[in-house]
Design a protein around this nucleic acid. Structure first.
Lengths: 115, 115
DNA sequence: ATGAATAGCAACTTCATGGTTGCATTTATC
DNA sequence: GATAAATGCAACCATGAAGTTGCTATTCAT
Protein backbone atom coordinates (compact mmCIF):
# COMPACT_ATOMS: atom_id res chain seq x y z
CA UNK A 1 0.00 0.00 0.00
CA UNK A 2 1.20 3.45 -0.79
CA UNK A 3 1.58 5.90 2.02
CA UNK A 4 -0.04 8.49 -0.21
CA UNK A 5 -3.79 8.14 -0.01
CA UNK A 6 -4.17 9.87 -3.36
CA UNK A 7 -2.00 7.42 -5.24
CA UNK A 8 -4.75 4.97 -5.97
CA UNK A 9 -7.03 7.74 -7.08
CA UNK A 10 -4.55 9.11 -9.54
CA UNK A 11 -3.85 5.65 -10.89
CA UNK A 12 -7.47 5.05 -11.75
CA UNK A 13 -8.14 8.62 -12.76
CA UNK A 14 -7.84 8.07 -16.49
CA UNK A 15 -10.68 5.60 -16.62
CA UNK A 16 -12.62 7.82 -14.28
CA UNK A 17 -12.10 10.83 -16.51
CA UNK A 18 -13.59 8.77 -19.32
CA UNK A 19 -16.71 8.13 -17.28
CA UNK A 20 -17.01 11.80 -16.33
CA UNK A 21 -16.53 12.78 -19.95
CA UNK A 22 -19.21 10.33 -21.00
CA UNK A 23 -21.64 12.04 -18.63
CA UNK A 24 -20.42 15.49 -19.58
CA UNK A 25 -22.85 15.94 -22.45
CA UNK A 26 -26.44 16.91 -21.86
CA UNK A 27 -27.76 14.52 -24.48
CA UNK A 28 -25.93 11.59 -22.95
CA UNK A 29 -26.95 12.65 -19.48
CA UNK A 30 -30.57 12.64 -20.60
CA UNK A 31 -30.09 9.14 -22.00
CA UNK A 32 -28.75 8.00 -18.66
CA UNK A 33 -31.72 9.66 -17.04
CA UNK A 34 -34.12 7.87 -19.37
CA UNK A 35 -32.45 4.55 -18.58
CA UNK A 36 -32.36 5.18 -14.86
CA UNK A 37 -36.00 4.13 -14.72
CA UNK A 38 -34.66 0.64 -15.06
CA UNK A 39 -36.37 -0.53 -18.21
CA UNK A 40 -34.23 -1.55 -21.12
CA UNK A 41 -34.79 0.53 -24.22
CA UNK A 42 -33.95 0.24 -27.88
CA UNK A 43 -32.15 2.90 -29.86
CA UNK A 44 -35.36 3.78 -31.66
CA UNK A 45 -37.16 4.21 -28.36
CA UNK A 46 -34.42 6.36 -26.93
CA UNK A 47 -34.45 8.50 -30.04
CA UNK A 48 -38.19 9.18 -29.99
CA UNK A 49 -38.21 11.93 -27.39
CA UNK A 50 -35.09 13.70 -28.66
CA UNK A 51 -34.57 16.16 -31.50
CA UNK A 52 -31.68 14.21 -32.97
CA UNK A 53 -31.26 11.55 -35.57
CA UNK A 54 -31.09 7.91 -34.62
CA UNK A 55 -27.45 7.81 -35.64
CA UNK A 56 -26.53 10.61 -33.30
CA UNK A 57 -28.20 8.81 -30.41
CA UNK A 58 -26.51 5.61 -31.47
CA UNK A 59 -23.12 7.29 -31.30
CA UNK A 60 -23.84 8.69 -27.87
CA UNK A 61 -24.88 5.27 -26.63
CA UNK A 62 -21.69 3.82 -27.95
CA UNK A 63 -19.70 6.40 -26.01
CA UNK A 64 -21.64 5.63 -22.86
CA UNK A 65 -21.06 1.95 -23.43
CA UNK A 66 -17.32 2.17 -23.95
CA UNK A 67 -17.13 4.20 -20.75
CA UNK A 68 -18.96 1.38 -18.98
CA UNK A 69 -21.95 3.48 -18.01
CA UNK A 70 -24.32 1.47 -20.13
CA UNK A 71 -24.43 -1.98 -21.58
CA UNK A 72 -26.27 -3.32 -24.59
CA UNK A 73 -27.58 -6.59 -25.85
CA UNK A 74 -28.88 -7.37 -29.25
CA UNK A 75 -32.28 -9.04 -29.23
CA UNK A 76 -33.82 -9.77 -32.56
CA UNK A 77 -33.63 -6.70 -34.69
CA UNK A 78 -33.28 -4.31 -31.83
CA UNK A 79 -30.41 -3.40 -29.57
CA UNK A 80 -31.51 -2.99 -25.97
CA UNK A 81 -29.61 -0.70 -23.64
CA UNK A 82 -29.56 -0.63 -19.87
CA UNK A 83 -27.70 1.28 -17.18
CA UNK A 84 -24.67 -0.35 -15.67
CA UNK A 85 -25.06 0.47 -12.00
CA UNK A 86 -21.52 -0.62 -11.24
CA UNK A 87 -20.13 2.37 -13.12
CA UNK A 88 -22.28 4.71 -11.07
CA UNK A 89 -21.08 3.06 -7.89
CA UNK A 90 -17.48 3.59 -8.85
CA UNK A 91 -18.18 7.18 -9.73
CA UNK A 92 -19.89 7.77 -6.44
CA UNK A 93 -17.02 6.30 -4.47
CA UNK A 94 -14.54 8.39 -6.41
CA UNK A 95 -16.38 11.62 -5.65
CA UNK A 96 -16.73 10.60 -2.04
CA UNK A 97 -13.02 9.93 -1.73
CA UNK A 98 -12.11 13.32 -3.11
CA UNK A 99 -14.52 15.15 -0.86
CA UNK A 100 -13.32 12.91 1.96
CA UNK A 101 -9.75 14.07 1.37
CA UNK A 102 -10.99 17.61 1.42
CA UNK A 103 -12.95 17.16 4.62
CA UNK A 104 -9.96 15.52 6.29
CA UNK A 105 -7.69 18.39 5.36
CA UNK A 106 -10.22 20.87 6.67
CA UNK A 107 -10.35 18.94 9.91
CA UNK A 108 -6.56 19.02 10.17
CA UNK A 109 -6.59 22.74 9.52
CA UNK A 110 -9.22 23.26 12.16
CA UNK A 111 -7.24 21.23 14.68
CA UNK A 112 -4.13 23.22 13.87
CA UNK A 113 -5.84 26.56 14.31
CA UNK A 114 -7.48 25.57 17.56
CA UNK A 115 -4.34 24.11 19.05
CA UNK B 1 -43.94 19.31 -6.91
CA UNK B 2 -43.91 17.30 -10.06
CA UNK B 3 -45.25 13.80 -9.99
CA UNK B 4 -42.29 12.72 -12.06
CA UNK B 5 -39.31 12.12 -9.79
CA UNK B 6 -36.94 12.65 -12.69
CA UNK B 7 -38.25 16.07 -13.60
CA UNK B 8 -36.00 17.97 -11.26
CA UNK B 9 -33.01 15.99 -12.39
CA UNK B 10 -33.63 16.76 -16.03
CA UNK B 11 -34.17 20.43 -15.26
CA UNK B 12 -30.80 20.77 -13.60
CA UNK B 13 -29.07 18.39 -15.93
CA UNK B 14 -27.49 21.04 -18.14
CA UNK B 15 -25.50 22.57 -15.31
CA UNK B 16 -24.68 19.09 -14.11
CA UNK B 17 -23.41 18.08 -17.52
CA UNK B 18 -21.10 21.08 -17.33
CA UNK B 19 -19.65 19.83 -14.07
CA UNK B 20 -19.23 16.32 -15.43
CA UNK B 21 -17.57 17.71 -18.54
CA UNK B 22 -15.24 19.78 -16.40
CA UNK B 23 -14.12 16.60 -14.64
CA UNK B 24 -14.03 14.61 -17.85
CA UNK B 25 -10.46 15.47 -18.71
CA UNK B 26 -7.57 13.70 -17.05
CA UNK B 27 -5.54 16.87 -16.65
CA UNK B 28 -8.39 18.64 -14.91
CA UNK B 29 -9.12 15.61 -12.80
CA UNK B 30 -5.51 15.59 -11.66
CA UNK B 31 -5.81 19.25 -10.76
CA UNK B 32 -8.86 18.48 -8.67
CA UNK B 33 -6.90 15.67 -7.08
CA UNK B 34 -3.99 18.00 -6.29
CA UNK B 35 -6.39 20.47 -4.71
CA UNK B 36 -8.25 17.84 -2.76
CA UNK B 37 -5.45 17.92 -0.20
CA UNK B 38 -7.03 21.14 0.94
CA UNK B 39 -4.17 23.57 0.49
CA UNK B 40 -4.67 26.46 -1.87
CA UNK B 41 -2.24 26.50 -4.77
CA UNK B 42 -1.12 29.01 -7.34
CA UNK B 43 -1.15 28.37 -11.07
CA UNK B 44 2.63 28.09 -11.07
CA UNK B 45 2.52 25.50 -8.30
CA UNK B 46 -0.15 23.50 -10.04
CA UNK B 47 1.86 23.59 -13.25
CA UNK B 48 5.09 22.31 -11.70
CA UNK B 49 4.26 18.62 -11.64
CA UNK B 50 2.61 18.55 -15.05
CA UNK B 51 4.04 18.32 -18.55
CA UNK B 52 2.04 21.26 -19.84
CA UNK B 53 2.58 24.97 -20.13
CA UNK B 54 1.32 27.35 -17.50
CA UNK B 55 -1.22 28.70 -19.97
CA UNK B 56 -2.71 25.30 -20.58
CA UNK B 57 -3.12 24.75 -16.85
CA UNK B 58 -4.56 28.21 -16.53
CA UNK B 59 -7.19 27.42 -19.14
CA UNK B 60 -8.11 24.19 -17.41
CA UNK B 61 -8.48 25.98 -14.10
CA UNK B 62 -10.76 28.51 -15.73
CA UNK B 63 -12.95 25.70 -17.02
CA UNK B 64 -13.08 24.13 -13.59
CA UNK B 65 -13.92 27.48 -12.08
CA UNK B 66 -16.75 28.32 -14.45
CA UNK B 67 -18.20 24.89 -13.72
CA UNK B 68 -18.10 25.76 -10.03
CA UNK B 69 -15.70 22.98 -9.12
CA UNK B 70 -12.97 25.35 -8.06
CA UNK B 71 -12.73 28.93 -6.91
CA UNK B 72 -9.87 31.36 -7.08
CA UNK B 73 -8.69 34.47 -5.31
CA UNK B 74 -5.97 36.79 -6.34
CA UNK B 75 -3.43 37.46 -3.64
CA UNK B 76 -0.57 39.68 -4.54
CA UNK B 77 0.92 38.48 -7.74
CA UNK B 78 -0.42 34.99 -7.50
CA UNK B 79 -3.85 33.53 -8.09
CA UNK B 80 -4.71 30.91 -5.49
CA UNK B 81 -7.11 28.11 -6.32
CA UNK B 82 -9.08 25.88 -4.01
CA UNK B 83 -11.68 23.18 -4.37
CA UNK B 84 -15.29 24.17 -4.00
CA UNK B 85 -16.72 21.33 -1.93
CA UNK B 86 -20.27 22.41 -2.65
CA UNK B 87 -19.92 21.36 -6.28
CA UNK B 88 -18.77 17.92 -5.21
CA UNK B 89 -21.73 17.63 -2.88
CA UNK B 90 -24.14 18.43 -5.68
CA UNK B 91 -22.44 15.95 -7.94
CA UNK B 92 -22.60 13.27 -5.33
CA UNK B 93 -26.29 13.82 -4.71
CA UNK B 94 -26.95 13.72 -8.44
CA UNK B 95 -25.22 10.40 -8.89
CA UNK B 96 -26.98 9.04 -5.85
CA UNK B 97 -30.36 10.06 -7.19
CA UNK B 98 -29.76 8.34 -10.49
CA UNK B 99 -28.57 5.15 -8.90
CA UNK B 100 -31.43 5.49 -6.42
CA UNK B 101 -33.90 5.56 -9.30
CA UNK B 102 -32.24 2.50 -10.69
CA UNK B 103 -32.29 0.65 -7.39
CA UNK B 104 -35.94 1.50 -6.90
CA UNK B 105 -36.84 0.16 -10.31
CA UNK B 106 -34.93 -3.01 -9.62
CA UNK B 107 -36.81 -3.37 -6.36
CA UNK B 108 -40.12 -2.94 -8.19
CA UNK B 109 -39.09 -5.52 -10.74
CA UNK B 110 -38.09 -7.93 -8.03
CA UNK B 111 -41.39 -7.43 -6.23
CA UNK B 112 -43.25 -8.01 -9.50
CA UNK B 113 -41.39 -11.19 -10.30
CA UNK B 114 -41.80 -12.61 -6.81
CA UNK B 115 -45.47 -11.77 -6.58
C1' DA C 1 14.82 51.32 -10.01
C1' DT C 2 15.86 47.09 -12.13
C1' DG C 3 15.08 42.23 -12.57
C1' DA C 4 12.63 38.13 -11.76
C1' DA C 5 8.31 35.81 -10.67
C1' DT C 6 3.37 35.33 -11.53
C1' DA C 7 -0.16 35.83 -14.29
C1' DG C 8 -3.34 37.54 -18.24
C1' DC C 9 -4.48 38.21 -23.21
C1' DA C 10 -4.64 37.05 -28.07
C1' DA C 11 -3.69 34.57 -32.17
C1' DC C 12 -2.87 30.38 -34.09
C1' DT C 13 -2.71 25.16 -35.05
C1' DT C 14 -4.33 20.61 -34.52
C1' DC C 15 -7.49 17.27 -33.71
C1' DA C 16 -11.60 15.33 -31.50
C1' DT C 17 -16.57 15.77 -31.07
C1' DG C 18 -21.35 16.18 -32.35
C1' DG C 19 -24.06 16.02 -35.94
C1' DT C 20 -25.72 14.93 -40.61
C1' DT C 21 -26.77 12.09 -44.98
C1' DG C 22 -26.76 7.96 -47.78
C1' DC C 23 -26.61 3.20 -48.26
C1' DA C 24 -26.27 -1.72 -46.80
C1' DT C 25 -27.74 -5.43 -43.54
C1' DT C 26 -30.53 -8.11 -40.60
C1' DT C 27 -35.01 -9.36 -38.72
C1' DA C 28 -39.91 -9.41 -38.36
C1' DT C 29 -44.51 -9.29 -40.64
C1' DC C 30 -48.13 -9.82 -44.13
C1' DG D 1 -41.12 -13.46 -50.92
C1' DA D 2 -41.84 -8.65 -50.56
C1' DT D 3 -42.06 -4.88 -47.43
C1' DA D 4 -41.26 -2.40 -43.32
C1' DA D 5 -38.65 -1.80 -39.04
C1' DA D 6 -34.30 -1.45 -36.51
C1' DT D 7 -29.72 -1.07 -36.81
C1' DG D 8 -24.87 -0.64 -38.57
C1' DC D 9 -21.25 1.46 -41.40
C1' DA D 10 -18.77 5.12 -43.77
C1' DA D 11 -17.96 9.58 -45.47
C1' DC D 12 -18.41 14.11 -44.61
C1' DC D 13 -18.92 18.92 -42.34
C1' DA D 14 -18.66 22.37 -38.82
C1' DT D 15 -17.34 23.67 -34.52
C1' DG D 16 -15.07 23.64 -30.27
C1' DA D 17 -11.44 22.00 -27.24
C1' DA D 18 -6.56 21.40 -26.02
C1' DG D 19 -2.39 23.08 -26.52
C1' DT D 20 1.31 26.18 -28.07
C1' DT D 21 3.89 30.69 -28.74
C1' DG D 22 4.57 35.56 -28.14
C1' DC D 23 3.75 39.67 -25.82
C1' DT D 24 2.03 42.66 -21.98
C1' DA D 25 0.99 43.85 -17.21
C1' DT D 26 1.50 43.46 -12.02
C1' DT D 27 3.93 42.59 -8.05
C1' DC D 28 7.72 41.40 -5.18
C1' DA D 29 12.62 41.60 -3.91
C1' DT D 30 17.30 43.37 -4.14
Amino acid sequence: MSRNPLARLSRQSDATATVFAALGDSTRLSLVLALSRGNRQSIAQLTESKPLTRQAISKHLRILESAGVVSSRREGRENLFALNPQALDELRSYVEQISGQWDASLARLKAFVEK
